[in-house]
Every structure is written in C-alpha cells, then in structure tokens.
Design a protein around this nucleic acid. Structure first.
Lengths: 223, 223
DNA sequence: GACTTAATGGAACAGGAGTCCCGTTATGAC
DNA sequence: GTCATAACGGGACTCCTGTTCCATTAAGTC
C-alpha cells in the first residue's frame, strides 16, 4: 500500500515550510525552487487534482500522476514520496487560493451566501470529488490532516467577520463564537456529502443558513 | 492499487443480498452460509475493523486482515475481492447492531442525549478511527457509499421519533422534517472529526444539540 | 452415517508499485 | 558567460499485492 500513514517520511516541503538548517542534504526543491522546479510542482499538483477527482484517493497512483504531469516518475517519488504527502502539498496550494466573500448587510444574507457557495463547490463535479478525496486522504495521515485543518481554518477565518459584524449590529448576542457559526453553516452540507448521502440541493443550503442564523440569534453559540 | 472504485467487481454479498438465480455459479458464501462460512465472516469483519482502526483505510491490506482473522488469504480475496467491498460488508454488519435511544421528555433533552452519544462514539479511540476509515472508504467506491448511506439512514430513522414527539407536544412547528433535525445534531460533530479538526469536547456536543433545538423551534427545518 | 460439492487454505505464480543508480539538464551565484 | 551542483529522467531491479491451481475440509441433504 502507498503509505502507512504514520511512518516518518518527511514531506519535502515545497511551500511555506522553510526547514531549519539541518546538517544532512536539504529536501529536494528547497534550494533551487525557481524555474523548472516550480513548473514541475505546478504540473504535478494539477495532475494530482485531476487524478483525485477522477479516481478518488484509493485510486491515486503516483506513477499515473507523473505521466499526466509529463514528469519523471522518480521525481514525484523523490519530492513527495507518498500519496498522502502529495495531497498535503495540494492542500497547501489550495489554501493559498482565496475565495471572495460577499457582504449583504444581514447575518442571514451573509450566511446564505456562504451556504450556497459551499453547496456549489461541493456539487461541482470536479471540486466535489476532489474534496471527498482530500478528506479521505486526511483520515489516513497526520500531516495531511494538519494541512486540511489549516485549509479550513483559513476559510473559516475569512468568513468570521460577517458574524462579528452581526454581533455588533445586535443580531446575535455578545460572546457568540463567530467560527462556530460559520462551521455550523458548512457542517450539514459536508455531512450530506460524506456521511448521509442526502441530496445537496438548494433547499439544504437554505436550511443550513437559516438554521445557523436562528441558532446564533438564540444564543446557542455563546462560549 | 486495491480498487478503482468503479470496476464491476460484484461484492459477493454475504448478507442482505440475495442474488436472483443466475445461471453461472453463485457467489461464494451464499449456498452454505452456516457454520464455517459464518465463523470466517465474523472473524474477517472483526479483523477488518481492528485493522481499519489501527492503520486507516489507506493502510488496509487484505493479506493482513486474513492473517489477523487466522483465515487463508485466498478466502478473503475470493469472498470480498477488494478493500472497499470488505468495508461495505462491514457497514452492513454495523448497521445491524442497534443503539438504544433514551427518552427524556423534551426535544432539547433528547437531542442532547443524541449529541453526547455521537460525541462519545467519535472520540472513542477505536470507534472514531473506524468511522473515519469507513467514511474514507465510502468516498472511493459507489457500493461502499451506498452501504454507508444505508447505515446512517438506519441510525437517523431510529432517532426521528423524538422529533415527531416534540412536534406533537408543540415544541417545533408542524411540517418540521424530523430527519433534518437529527442530521443537524450529528453534522457539526462529523464536520469537526473529518474537516476542521476542532476538538470534539463536551461543549461542542452541547452547542450541536442546543443549536439544532433552537433552529427547529424557529422553524428552520420546515419543508 | 454416507455422500455431494461448497468453501477453505497452502503454494506457486504474475504483475505492478516503489526504489536505486547514474547520466543529463538547467538553476542560481559569480 | 562560466561554473558547481541541485533537480530531473530513464531504466533496471526488488518486493509485495493480488491471482491461479488444486488438495483438503466440512456444510447441507438424504
């Protein structure tokens, strides 16, 4: 099997991970990160995303990714080493691409915008499959799950201000945890995607938003 | 890799799946399901659960499962054929074991009982890891995800009556979807387990229950 | 208890994932 | 432009997953 999920395979950090000067040779990709190296990483991550969306995490084969990226198989194994490490790097890349947030002026309006954005993402053929695969990978490896958590922390932080504004407007009681409210909007949609399998229709997004808004108003998310 | 997630590998149904009389030879385990066959299935499913809890889905190796179950490797490959099919059968087995439901007399009380039960399950070392692994497997294969959805449908159905009772008592508006309320309790806990990684503490269970109750009271789950 | 054959299990086999070696390319520093 | 060497890529090699074959065991029927 690809990875035991716990072995000490250092993920050769190609982004955001500047290693302290170890005596041994540095991880490949860190000393000359420009030009070819960057092009290779870009091509491999795109190929990995495609492969994950098509075959899911269990079907992720590094040799296949190398071929799609038109890159040597050795390179992929040397720089990433395992499927989970590759997914972890993909998540770092995904976290960097920010999504725009809309401001409607009311808590319910903002939460509805968020709910429909999440729903659209998860029902998109490629994106939905990709998220499923990435979450599956994260269940198998600690570093990958760390990267996943960082990804969601980024996204939740981006949307927290709309709850803070709502508190300032008096739409929710003081002491309400903004992150908890944002999580409450996404949670039912992810639950459908991953667990229950119920349809991710427009109504489910509406329910998610109205429920989170009602619960916030009632003070259910006061710390 | 173990399974491409779509190939037409018939999972030799050992439970709940009575095949129509095909001309070809029947799936192994269906003609003489008693005695040894049943013991083998039990041992293999237990071993599969242990292996999943220990190494996660990516680390699931059928040869390892066979050894743990003290069963021939050939038997496991013949009867289940792929890791995802084995997990699907495990889910059928899990769905059969029912969990007791408590009746507290109020919607909030019942939902709190449910939330804490789910939380306890997901934070249990073995059970939590098992659920993660099973969900990961379901993202990779259609039959496995069908089995997972059936599992949750069973569980949700078991708890729906407490919402129906609440509607009858006037605690939630008529037309409220009971299943939606029960899902709303579990969803934030699963979201933490699988996506955001936030701690599954007692407070998170309380929030899940109170939020679902408040949203239901406010009519957020009216169809 | 005897009989048919479904189901199991050991062993040999095949194919592919992942590793290693070493020559080639091109980055970054001067 | 020149140079040292980081990073890449092809191909051979290894080991392990998954398959096939056939002898052995025991479930179900009379």
């Amino acid at each position: 099997m690809t990875s035991d999920g716990l072995a000490g395979d250092l993920p050769p950090g190609s982004a955001g991970h500047i290693p302290e000067p170890v005596d041994g040779p540095a991880d490949p990709g860190t000393v000359r990160p420009g030009g070819r190296t960057a092009r290779v990483r870009e091509a491999v991550l795109r190929a990995a995303g495609d492969a994950l969306a098509e075959h899911g995490f269990a079907g992720l084969d590094l040799a296949d990714v190398a071929q799609r990226a038109e890159v040597g198989k050795t390179t992929v194994y040397r720089r990433w080493g395992s499927t989970t490490a590759l997914v972890a790097d993909l998540l770092v890349d995904m976290a960097e691409s920010s999504v725009s947030r809309t401001e409607t002026g009311s808590l319910l309006g903002d939460l509805r915008a968020n709910a429909h954005l999440v729903r659209r993402t998860l029902t998109d053929e490629r994106q939905g499959a990709l998220f499923k695969a990435v979450i599956a990978a994260a269940t198998c490896d600690n570093r990958t799950s760390d990267a996943l958590h960082a990804f969601y922390a980024t996204r939740i932080k981006e949307w927290a201000p709309c709850v803070e504004a709502a508190i300032a407007r008096g739409e929710a009681p003081a002491g309400t945890d903004p992150h908890e409210v944002i999580r409450a909007v996404s949670a039912p949609l992810y639950y459908r995607l991953l667990a229950s399998g119920d349809p991710l229709d427009e109504a489910s997004a509406e329910h998610a938003a109205t429920a989170a808004a009602a619960a916030a108003r009632a003070g259910a998310y006061v710390r």
